[in-house]
Design a protein around this nucleic acid. Structure first.
Lengths: 338, 338
DNA sequence: TTGTAGGCGTTATCAT
DNA sequence: ATGATAACGCCTACAA
């Protein structure tokens, strides 16, 4: 490991002052052609790259954006990261990621850690929208934030999918097939996403003059185990649901075996609509109908929004960009048995 | 956006010199109890966090590690990232990620970008093990590197799964069921992983006194489309395979529909073994036998290896840590029809 | 057009 | 035990 090569080394090699080297790399026009060439040659020769640490001390942008979510293994989040990366890398930005594992304390710490490391903004899927400490930290405005699928009582912009319409259309469809007992399994209780979904379910019912049976609502977790357990319990109810809307990637993997082990068939005994789309949903037998949205595009939008904020083109002010959802019908829905 | 709070602010507030503030945060013992308390109070009061940019200029570790792979959306990679994050965050490190999208040029650029941003090491799934430029850059030793599932002709340590044994056992099992025409679909041609897998297939055949029919080898891509197309072509061969080993996450999603559309049944018409394990493999009908390895643990090991290298406990020298693979039998294999 | 010098926020080396 | 001060590598007035 040789010593770091600095402007001074380049300047000496090119026989100029360090200021001239700086001018060359920063494209300042007032530099003679011959000098510019000599300096460039020295730079290439020595393989010098300006130290970002030194630059950022001078107030130059670090071009780093932080990402906080519960777990990068959730394919929704990795798709969003990839989507954001596409936009951000075009603008010279790089991405730092960190998992909160669902802890608000950890989120708080991560916000500080990111800032300390010079992140210029954070794309953030808050765990608990009502945690006062997180709220205060975001409100402090120390670090520009774009919310992912969340809503906060603070002047922060957000990007999210239109879960309300998606869930409403799914419920409307099931109701139109004749279903009257529609279960819903999802998590994120207390978040914008969960509120939208529940509202969508309610709206579809009201519109048809029906009411939602609270017994059929299981809204407490996104875990596979939860879905497995609750689906079994739902199916062993005296009046089991004839259809279920299962919202959240890991849940489908719990619901499918629960239905199988309870000896029910899809769609004859129970109709199913899941979200988001996945290879499992596409390739299951029968293929599962889903509410689909483009997580990659959502990542794109989040990045664009943050970039606009950094450029000052847009104020941080509860602006919300909405990505459409789409109901994809496959073989998992039918009219209920008489 | 208020101005940054610095040591000077804290020093002034506590009525001490900046050096003393520095001593307090760095836990230097030669500080009076009263002074230490006063300084700490001022720090908490102002919410001061030392600027990492300034620190790293002084040669203090930035505690940042870079990750390069083709696409974070591959669940294998996101699992590895999560695994590495678990270890790294315990040691105060944070993670930067970037996708190469399969381009060696991009990899080269990313290596520079990471270094420029102060990364202390990189965990790297090289795309092309024989690219001379990448090889040269890694050899330059500018940035400590740990290879993920790869091998390079350079003094670099690596972490990978034992694909040779895994594939050999899978092939042995199929041969023991009576299969004589075993196809293999996978990608990454020219990488260590691909070599190991092919060797495993060969070893199992040789041991049984059989030879591998090169017609049944499709080794050119990890894409779903590739698997879909090649599987259909394999099945329409005059002498189609009676079994297939399909190695690579996205491939199973191509193979399954290809088999379905060709009107074959698993395992009656064709036996199938896939890798790595996935929800799709578990929940398909029938459930698919797989060669499984723990990508999360692999990420753990990569992080540990890099940490040891950074501490100087281990030299960069082609050390390879191997994670075991396991053959998980499910309902996708049977003896071939007569 | 090019060079000199000051300062960004820390840490570390001197003094005191 | 504490304070003053010199780096670290870079950018940018300002001077020449």
């Amino acid at each position: 490991m040789t010593k770091r090569v600095t402007v001074h080394d380049v300047a000496r090699a090119a026989g100029v002052a360090i200021a001239t080297v700086s001018r060359v790399v920063n494209g300042v026009p007032t530099v003679g052609e011959d000098v510019r060439a000599r300096v460039q040659a020295a730079i290439d020769e020595l393989g010098w790259k300006p130290s970002m640490a030194a630059q950022s001390m001078r107030g130059v942008s670090t071009r780093m954006i932080g990402f906080i979510f519960s777990d990068i293994r959730n394919p929704i989040y990795s798709a969003m990261v990839k989507g954001a990366e596409g936009i951000l890398s075009e603008h010279g930005y790089m991405i730092m990621v960190a998992s909160s594992d669902g802890s608000s304390e950890r989120e708080l710490a991560l916000l500080d850690l990111f800032r300390q490391r010079g992140a210029e903004g954070v794309i953030f899927a808050v765990q608990d929208e009502s945690n006062p400490k997180v709220l205060a930290k975001v409100r402090s405005g120390n670090l520009p934030v774009v919310l992912l699928e969340r809503e906060l009582d603070a002047p922060v912009n957000a990007v999210g999918a239109d879960h309300l319409s998606g869930t409403r259309r799914a419920a409307e469809y099931l109701i139109s097939l004749g279903h009257r007992r529609i279960a819903m399994i999802t998590g994120g209780n207390g978040t914008r996403v969960a509120r939208d979904r529940l509202l969508g379910l309610r709206q579809a019912h009201e519109q048809a003059g029906l009411t939602v049976d609270p017994q059929l609502l299981r809204l407490d977790s996104f875990s596979t185990e939860y879905a497995y357990r609750e689906m079994q319990m739902l199916l062993s109810l005296p009046q089991p649901p004839t259809a279920a809307i299962v919202l959240g990637m890991p849940l489908l993997s719990g619901v499918l075996p629960a239905i199988r082990i309870s000896n029910r068939r899809i769609p004859e005994d129970i109709s199913l609509i899941a979200s988001n789309d996945s290879e499992l949903a596409q390739l299951a037998t029968p293929p599962i109908s889903v509410i689909r949205y483009d997580a990659h595009a959502l990542g794109n939008e989040a990045a664009r929004m943050l970039l606009r904020q950094l450029k000052g083109e847009v104020p941080p002010d509860k602006i919300r960009i909405q990505i459409p959802t789409e109901l994809v019908l496959r073989g998992s829905c039918a009219s209920p048995a008489q």
